[in-house]
Amino acid sequence: MAKHRIYTTAFASIYPLYVAKAEKKGRTKAEVDHVISWLTGYDQKDLKAQLEKQTDFETFFAEAPKINPSRALIKGVICGVRVEDIEEPTMREIRYLDKLIDELAQGKMMDKILRRN
């Protein structure tokens, strides 16, 4: 079975869409970066480097410095699919990020988004 095309899509091509979605709802680029950092462990310098290298999604997650173990607390539906039911690991990571960006755009408090109940 062929890989989904999102795997080979440059993270840098989707990142501005994440930022635009958040900013449209009154959130900031810094908050988007914070969510990405929480999920992946990339600091600002490394995130910028990944964007400049046009790293694809599969590599972006494979090279992530420290995937947050609390990401398993992310539950809910994204694109009509429950994130906790996605079996393919890379797709699940991508959907975790999508879900976090959605929550940011929906106005949730950062502590809730970062699962700091």
Rank of each mutant, 00 (worst) to 15 (best):
Y96D: 13
K29T: 02
E87D: 11
H4E: 11
R92K: 15
M109I: 11
I86P: 01
P89D: 09
D102W: 02
D111Y: 13
E58N: 12
A62V: 05
T55R: 08
L104F: 08
K24H: 09
I101A: 01
I6K: 06
R5K: 13
I86E: 08
L104H: 07
Y42H: 02
K66Q: 15
R5F: 11
S37R: 12
Q44L: 09
D43W: 02
N117L: 11
K25E: 10
R115D: 06
K108L: 14
S70I: 07
I86G: 01
K53L: 14
Q54R: 15
H34A: 14
G107W: 04
I6F: 10
M110R: 07
L17I: 14
H4R: 11
E84W: 04
R71C: 09
L39H: 03
I14A: 01
Q50V: 07
A49F: 02
G76Y: 06
R5G: 07
E58F: 11
R95V: 05
Y7E: 07
H34N: 13
I67F: 15
R27K: 15
P16K: 06
A64K: 05
A49S: 12
V77R: 14
T40I: 07
I67W: 13
R71Y: 09
I113T: 11
M1N: 07
I6Y: 08
E58K: 13
K45F: 08
L39F: 00
Y18P: 00
Q54L: 06
T90S: 09
Q106K: 13
A49H: 05
K53V: 03
A72T: 13
G80L: 05
K24R: 11
I78K: 03
N68D: 10
G26H: 01
K24Q: 11
N117G: 13
I74F: 14
I113S: 03
K66D: 12
K48F: 12
Y15V: 05
R95P: 00
Q54S: 10
V19G: 01
L51E: 03
I101M: 09
S13G: 02
Y18K: 02
I94E: 01
L17N: 11
K66F: 11
R92C: 02
K75E: 14
L39G: 00
E84D: 15
K29Y: 01
L39V: 04
A22F: 02
D85Q: 13
E23S: 10
A64V: 05
M1D: 07
A20H: 10
I78H: 07
E93T: 04
R71N: 12
A2Q: 11
K66W: 05
L100M: 15
T9Q: 12
Y15Q: 04
P16F: 08
H34W: 06
L104D: 05
A72L: 13
E88Y: 07
M1V: 10
K24F: 10
C79P: 00
E31C: 00
S13Y: 10
K75Q: 15
L51P: 03
L39Q: 14
I86K: 04
K21E: 02
I67E: 15
K29L: 12
K29G: 01
R92M: 04
Q50N: 11
E52D: 14
V35N: 04
